[in-house]
Design a protein around this nucleic acid. Sequence first.
DNA 1: GTCTATATTGTGATAGAC
DNA 2: GTCTATCACAATATAGAC
Lengths: 184, 184
Amino acid sequence: MAAAERDGVRTRARILALAQQLFAAHGFAGTSIADIARVLGTSKAALYYHFKSKDEILEALVTEPVSAYAALAERCETERVSAKELVGALIDLTVETHTVNALLINDPSINAVLRRLYDVEGHVQTFVRSLADGDTTEAGRARAWAAFAVAKQGTFWAVQAGDGTLSPTAREEFLTAALRCLEP
Amino acid sequence: MAAAERDGVRTRARILALAQQLFAAHGFAGTSIADIARVLGTSKAALYYHFKSKDEILEALVTEPVSAYAALAERCETERVSAKELVGALIDLTVETHTVNALLINDPSINAVLRRLYDVEGHVQTFVRSLADGDTTEAGRARAWAAFAVAKQGTFWAVQAGDGTLSPTAREEFLTAALRCLEP
DNA sequence: GTCTATATTGTGATAGAC
DNA sequence: GTCTATCACAATATAGAC
């Protein structure tokens, strides 16, 4: 790999890392290209050499996590996934990509960009249906929502409030808490 | 009350209702005054007769719910509030103001406007500390976050997925689920 | 790869007529 | 109370030099 190419890749990665932070802090719509360029220490035009639009930066950020969620949802559709395994997978995905998750779950301003590409809400529906495990009563659905909330938002908030990681101890607590929510 | 004044109040209420919906759907930064005026069926200038800035619309929307959260946090600071009561209050507050809650909890773009006025994150910290009930271990904190996630985000998602209300049955499920999360 | 300069559109907000 | 017209500026994005 040539030196210039390597630097290009590194710059691209830097842009993504900075954009991730800024989007998480101020939202996608609340962050301008000028904001990113400022913290990057370059001009706006330099940014457009690496990405052809602001939307493309967002897409580059969310593609990997969303694909992971899509794959997990696909599994839930085709085979039976135990609640324990699903909750564990959701917790791990939340931690691995927790900065991007601040966008995926929370930021309403990304919807216009992402709804054409991915069906995030559909995946959520699939997870909750899988957690309910055939129970279509109102109470059963509520318990599934509660478990999902623990796995996704509980974990997310805890990681946010901490140092960006989740200890094995805390992970175990969230796992058992979510599973307890499911008990009738 | 004169007819003109009554109409003014009604128009103001209509603006707030529409803004609430649009902010929840596209985020605060992702919604323009022109967007609101369009669905309102009037001009932008008409909007500025009722509110002197976009920020003021947001403030009018969040003042009441944030005050309610602030009062609840204040109670938790001064007296001992049982987990059952606190979770119940959080669930009820979430349902009562669920559209605004989409903004308060989720939208990062409101921070720049609201952080000068209210300490939302501080209230969250207070609730979690109160739920942990003196347990400062990592596991205890994790359980408190889990319970808070059920009360706030679980309820919110369930209301969102439903018809905008929470049945007594579902409320009971979220209450017990959250309390179960707290058990060691 | 990065720059300055600029085109173009969007946005919050105001002036003044009705 | 609402309108049209407009301002000042910020936004995304591009052109073309280096």
